[in-house]
């Protein structure tokens, strides 16, 4: 039989821990390419823009059914990135300004939607938008070790965890498949085009996967954590130098580590220190920032060489 303490942990904390770790690793992996392409702020903008999509999905179907809200969020994130490139290109406005225009507009639309539609009463709470709903990921574990270790048990995990797990498997596979063209396209887009590699297509595929991961992570983790995990681990890994594959893996590792230790710190360590848990998403985000700060302090600046 599984002892009670472990049972409690499995019931309350296992699913959120798994969700945070899977999402953090995947976002760290995908964030490395955003950072390389200098599009970190676009990830930020997309994470903010998810909100109006969720609200629209909710308003159109009138329910909190996951699928329409997922589709709505995906559409909104896609719209945000399309609008940013459109405005930059045709309005001749510098990218950071275009990003500022687009994501604030969409986020304002989302807030208005939440407040005015009555969605707020149905638990599309604005606080959840920021810190997610990790605590709602609740799992009823089997009662014996034998059952716990059987493969079929995996499927009893909450839907969010399964989706994030699927993305965590799919992402490295896709990246491995398109690795060489992706490297060429990210390093030197012009050259990749002249070699007939369709860099736009390859990058769009990775970008689409990034969008899906942002949206899938959003509900459980909230917007702050998504942005932090897209940028901080990759920025920290970037300071280590080395070759591309090492950088990408390190970014995923930093992300996953922030997820595991941040979550355990907030839910297991904090209660013994201050007598109660603290916000887990916020802690994971802060920890990823701390890793960046440490790496930056250890970083040998080039001018000193």
């Amino acid at each position: 039989m599984i002892p009670d303490a472990l049972r409690t942990f499995l019931t309350l904390d296992f699913a959120p821990l798994l969700a945070v770790t899977l999402a953090a690793g995947t976002l760290g992996l995908l964030g490395s390419f955003l950072v390389l392409e200098r599009r970190a702020m676009i990830g930020d903008a997309m994470a903010h823009s998810v909100l109006p999509g969720l609200v629209a999905g909710f308003l159109i179907t009138g329910s909190r059914a996951p699928f329409p809200m997922f589709v709505g969020a995906l559409a909104a994130a896609g719209l945000a990135s399309a609008a940013i490139s459109f405005i930059t290109r045709y309005g001749r406005i510098d990218p950071s300004t275009a990003i500022g225009v687009v994501f604030t507009s969409l986020f304002a639309l989302g807030i208005l939607g939440v407040e005015a539609s009555g969605a707020r009463n149905v638990d599309l709470d604005l606080d959840c938008v920021l810190s997610g709903q990790l605590e709602l990921l609740y799992w009823r574990p089997p009662s014996t070790y034998a059952e716990l270790l059987s493969p079929a048990t995996v499927l009893t995990l909450p839907r969010e965890v399964l989706i994030l797990g699927a993305l965590a498997v799919l992402t490295p596979l896709l990246l491995a498949l398109v690795w060489k063209p992706l490297t060429a396209a990210t390093f030197d887009r012009t050259y990749a085009t002249t070699r007939g590699l369709r860099p736009t297509l390859v990058r769009s595929a990775v970008f689409a996967l990034t969008t899906v991961t942002i949206v899938a992570s959003f509900e459980a983790l909230g917007s702050i954590l998504v942005v932090a995990l897209l940028t901080c681990p990759a920025a920290a890994a970037r300071l280590r130098g080395g070759r591309l594959a090492g950088f990408v893996c390190m970014s995923a590792l930093f992300g996953a580590a922030s997820g595991v230790f941040g979550y355990l710190g907030a839910t297991q360590l904090a209660p013994t220190v201050i007598g109660g848990s603290i916000d887990a998403s916020g802690t994971v985000a802060s920890l990823s920032g701390l890793i960046l700060a440490v790496m930056a302090l250890r970083h040998r600046s080039r001018s000193a060489e």
Binding site: K180, F187, D188, T190, R238, R243
Partner: peptide, 25 residues
């Protein structure tokens, strides 16, 4: 036009030039 901070070595760059057709995959 190049981001010189990109984490690749000289050899990586030249290999890109040598790669052809199906080898990209």
């Amino acid at each position: 036009s190049i981001d010189w901070d990109f984490p690749v070595t000289a050899k990586d760059v030249v290999r890109m030039g040598a790669t052809r057709g199906a080898s990209w995959w």
